[in-house]
Design a protein around this nucleic acid. Structure first.
Lengths: 219, 219
DNA sequence: TCCTCTAAGTACCGTACGGTACGGTTCCCA
DNA sequence: TGGGAACCGTACCGTACGGTACTTAGAGGA
């Protein structure tokens, strides 16, 4: 299911992984400008020649950094347990918090900034990598959960895709762009996650007992 | 509803405005790398010395470009007319379409990419400019509309801020970031806007006649 | 007519980057 | 023990950029 990209998605040797980790550190610390081949060679105690042998050129290095980071972050597969309303609620809440945490991670932000900065130069190659390889996993996790919720009779919607986009928007709103622009993340992701899940269930959840699902305005 | 031009933009002389317009064109066309002082001087038929006299340095030029662009795009003030449910619905719909149109504009995307790319270098100065001066206007317009809706008894919520963030998330979802990463915009903003407004009214609108507000799932 | 101010055009400088080449060192394996 | 591959450190090259200085051309004003 994976390794469908044009990128070789090759494993990296321990030495290469250490260099890539250092590259990510430099990128997080100082952004695009701080990630120079000479600087990386110095910081990682390797030679520029090795960098070019391993990654081809600077763009190859950037692509390798994305692959490397995403090979480290893997979402755990949810086993298909029987869903109840409470379980669905909990899983949605965990998903929302996870999503916010991932998006506000400094490495994630740095890589997104990098890809956005390069998007007008390389035909969005990095951007596509980021969306395809990085987002697809978390998307799949949410879509599976949503589908499961529908099959269990707990959610209703026409298009799972549209419902997921709704959930995503409710969770993230403009936070991602604001953080990319340099704003500091929220203090409590938990409240934001809770609000988003409440709203999502109000929109797409089947009516529970009484007015439990018609909240969002009162307590 | 946007009005372009018409504002004399007292900040910049006509010559400077022409140069800034050319700078924006270069930025939209080729991104950060394409906006060099020599390139701008050549494209705009002005001297580099003039650029440095007018804008100080390259960062000053970038800041001036943001100011210039935002002096051109002004949102019209909504007069405080008496709101009905249909009027509120229409105004929300227009706002949603305007927001999507603004965010997917090539100049807006280019400036956001620029600010994001610089965010790790200049302490988010450009990002703050973009959020403060650019977004505040459209935020105010939406907040005014939402407040008006509450005062007319058509909307209910605890925090107007939170309600607006919900509206924003429903409208934009992850579209903005995806477009920043290089993805092509949606084909029809209208459907997206309509869905978002429906959902927002389901969450925060007072109950209307029958199942009119409980759509989004069945037919 | 002359003077001054503005700005275009160009030449220039220092720097920093991407990419290459080369010598020296370590380590593996025959 | 010898040879070769990998790799570090550094020196090097061409280029391109930000920023400055200088010369020239027009525009208005006294």
């Amino acid at each position: 299911m994976l390794s469908t990209g044009a990128a070789p998605s090759a494993e990296f040797s321990p030495r290469q992984s250490a260099v890539l980790a250092e590259a990510l550190r430099l990128l997080v610390e100082g952004g695009d400008k701080a990630l120079t081949t000479a600087g990386l060679a110095r910081a990682a105690s390797c030679s520029k020649e090795s960098l070019y042998k391993w990654f081809g050129d600077r763009d190859g290095l950037l692509a390798a950094m994305i692959s490397f980071q995403q090979s480290k972050v893997r979402t755990v597969e949810r086993s298909g347990e029987r869903l109840t309303a409470d379980l669905l609620h909990d899983h949605l809440d965990v998903f929302a918090r996870d999503l916010l945490e991932v998006l506000s991670g400094d490495v994630s932000l740095a890589l997104n900034r990098l890809a956005i900065g390069q998007s007008s130069r390389d035909g969005s190659k990095l951007g596509r990598m980021l969306v395809e390889h990085g987002r697809r996993q978390i998307d799949r996790r949410a879509m599976a959960l949503i589908d499961q919720g529908k099959r269990a009779g707990l959610l209703r919607f026409d298009s799972a895709e549209a419902a997921y986009h709704t959930l995503y928007g409710l969770i993230v709103s403009d936070l991602h762009v604001r953080m990319l622009l340099g704003e500091t993340p929220l203090k409590d992701n938990k409240a934001q996650a809770r609000r988003a899940v409440e709203a999502f269930l109000t929109l797409h959840g089947v009516q529970r007992d009484s007015g439990d699902a018609a909240v969002s305005s009162g307590k």
